[in-house]
Simulated scan of single mutants.
Amino acid sequence: MPVKIVRPFNVYGPGLKLDDKRVVPDFCRDALYSKKITLLSDGIPTRSFCYVRDALSGFMATLLSNHHREAFNIGNDEIEISMIDLAKLIAQNVGDVEIEHKQSNEVDYLIDNPQRRCPDLTKARTLLDYNPKVNLEEGLARTLKWYKEAYGL
């Protein structure tokens, strides 16, 4: 069967709603509306983030490939960033934003939350010639610009 499988890793960018409950829109919403980004952890866990254009490029490369019944990680392994550094980067882009630490109201919030999440893109790079191009700083700047325009901020 010509089945195609992708495993997306932390895709973000324009079009993602501010109330999506993912870390990038959550931090952007906090920064844009309250000027205070709330971290519900110590900020040490790391993630890598993939700009939507790069993710779509990987999805299309998978779809159009002859590699059936294969799973491909699609993401960006270039920059792995801690949550505290992500908050600082978004705060820097918005300007005049504080960062605070709070405990989640959900008792199990940090249970089974990995300390590190970064895709191995070896297979996608080798078989699909997949190479993400938008770095995190540029992607966040584009995303924040879109949020400001889309939400009238």
Rank of each mutant, 00 (worst) to 15 (best):
M1K: 14
P2T: 04
P2F: 05
I5F: 13
I5K: 03
I5H: 04
V6N: 02
V6P: 00
R7I: 12
P8G: 10
V11Q: 02
Y12A: 07
P14H: 07
P14G: 15
D19H: 14
V23H: 04
F27Q: 09
C28S: 12
A31P: 08
A31D: 10
L32R: 09
L32D: 10
L32K: 10
S34L: 01
T38G: 00
S41M: 03
G43I: 11
I44P: 00
T46W: 01
R47S: 10
R47E: 06
C50W: 05
Y51M: 08
R53A: 15
D54E: 10
A55I: 04
G58H: 05
F59C: 11
A61T: 05
A61F: 05
L63Q: 04
N66W: 06
H68Q: 04
R69N: 15
E70D: 06
F72D: 01
N76I: 01
D77C: 05
D77Q: 07
I81T: 13
I81E: 12
I84Y: 10
D85E: 15
D85R: 11
D85F: 03
L86D: 05
A87T: 11
A87F: 13
L89N: 02
I90L: 06
A91K: 07
V94S: 09
V97L: 09
E98F: 08
I99S: 09
H101Y: 15
K102S: 12
K102C: 10
Q103A: 03
Q103K: 14
Q103T: 11
D108Q: 07
D108Y: 11
Y109T: 01
Y109N: 03
L110D: 06
L110G: 04
L110E: 13
L110V: 02
P114V: 01
R117K: 09
C118Y: 00
C118D: 00
C118P: 02
D120G: 07
T122I: 11
T122A: 15
T126L: 15
T126R: 15
L128E: 06
D129A: 14
D129W: 00
Y130H: 06
N131R: 15
N131W: 13
V134N: 01
N135C: 15
L136C: 04
L136T: 03
E137N: 12
E138V: 15
L140M: 08
A141K: 15
W146E: 03
Y151L: 08
L153H: 10
L153N: 00
L153M: 11
